[in-house]
Simulated assay, not measured.
Amino acid sequence: MRQNPSFAMTDVAEIRRLIARNPWVTLVSSTEDGLVASHYAVLLDEERDDLTIVGHVGKPDDLIHGLGQRELLVVVQGPHGYVSPGWYGDTPSVPTWNFVSAHLSGIPEILTPDENLRVLDKLVAHFENGMPQPRLLWERPNDPDFVTRLERGTVGFRLTPTRVVGKRKLSQNKPDEVVETVIAGLDGGGAYADPRLADEMRRDFAARKAAR
């Protein structure tokens, strides 16, 4: 991902927030047969305060990616959306796309079956937490044999990235009044309304104003 100093996101806490709020990621590997990509959910490793993530792939994706043997690129995509030049006012301009994203690269560590099982348990608990009646991994009608077979069909991994590129392009290069207009446009009811992106812009805008 090409970096621009105006849009660089280097704060670990902010990238952790991005991962926590957008756990559905893209895994990319370069193999002898070319590039391969898969999509899985990940979690921040709760035992670490850095950008280490844990997750799993279903077999045979571990072999397809060469998991644990070569570098893995994890693409984390946050809120993103179209920005109309009409929101810039009466000035020469073109459309753009605002977004928040991070790329985490490194060689992942393969988890043991017990570690993988704990990660699977945490993944289910994490996402079921939002349900009115959570269905956890070990609860009926699941039984131990079912859970064991589930684990055997997956390969868990832990990735502590050795290279991180974070980018937050939220109209930081525009005057305050334009930023406010773009936020209003994204908050509106038009074809390109995107409240999540508007919230990210509003949060970033407030932080930048407070730092002046």
Rank of each mutant, 00 (worst) to 15 (best):
N22H: 14
G185K: 12
M1N: 15
S38P: 11
S38W: 07
I183A: 06
D90W: 13
L150T: 11
E139V: 08
A210H: 04
V100Q: 09
A41K: 09
K167V: 14
T31F: 09
L137N: 03
V147N: 11
Y82Q: 01
P108N: 02
R70C: 04
Y82K: 05
L18V: 02
D176T: 14
V74T: 03
I19K: 08
G190C: 06
W87S: 13
R21G: 08
A102S: 05
A125D: 03
N22E: 06
W24N: 10
A207R: 15
A210L: 00
E128S: 02
S6Q: 12
T148L: 09
L186S: 09
K169L: 11
K59F: 08
G190I: 05
D62E: 02
A211E: 11
H126V: 13
L27E: 03
W87V: 13
V12A: 11
K209Y: 00
D45L: 05
T91Y: 07
Y82W: 03
G58A: 05
N98G: 06
V74F: 01
N129T: 12
S171K: 14
H103Y: 09
H103N: 10
I53V: 10
G68S: 00
N116T: 04
N22R: 08
A191Q: 14
L43F: 07
L63Y: 01
R21T: 08
L27H: 09
A198C: 07
V25T: 08
G189S: 13
V147D: 10
V155N: 01
V165Q: 12
V75L: 11
D45G: 07
E71P: 14
G106M: 03
R118N: 13
M201A: 06
R152T: 04
H80R: 08
E14L: 09
K174D: 14
V100P: 09
V119H: 01
P60Y: 03
H126W: 10
R17C: 04
G34I: 15
R17H: 06
W97E: 14
L137W: 02
Y82S: 01
V74H: 03
L111P: 04
W24H: 13
G188Q: 05
V54M: 02
A198P: 01
L117S: 02
L73E: 04
V164M: 00
D62I: 04
L197Q: 10
D11M: 05
E128G: 06
D11H: 07
T91N: 08
L63V: 05
Q3M: 15
R2E: 15
R149S: 00
A184M: 10
L137F: 01
T160S: 12
A198R: 02
G78S: 04
E46Q: 08
E200T: 13
F127N: 11
G89Q: 13
I19N: 11
V165Y: 09
V155C: 01
M201E: 07
Q133I: 09
D33E: 12
P23F: 09
R16L: 00
P141G: 05
K59S: 11
S30I: 14
A193L: 10
R208W: 09
G58C: 01
R17K: 08
S30N: 15
R158D: 12
T154K: 07
T162C: 01
E139C: 03
D143H: 07
V76P: 07
R48Y: 10
I110P: 06
R135Q: 12
L67H: 02
L44T: 03
P85S: 09
A13S: 13
P141M: 07
V74L: 00
M131G: 05
D49F: 00
D114Q: 14
A125V: 05
T181S: 15
Y82R: 04
G58L: 00
M201N: 07
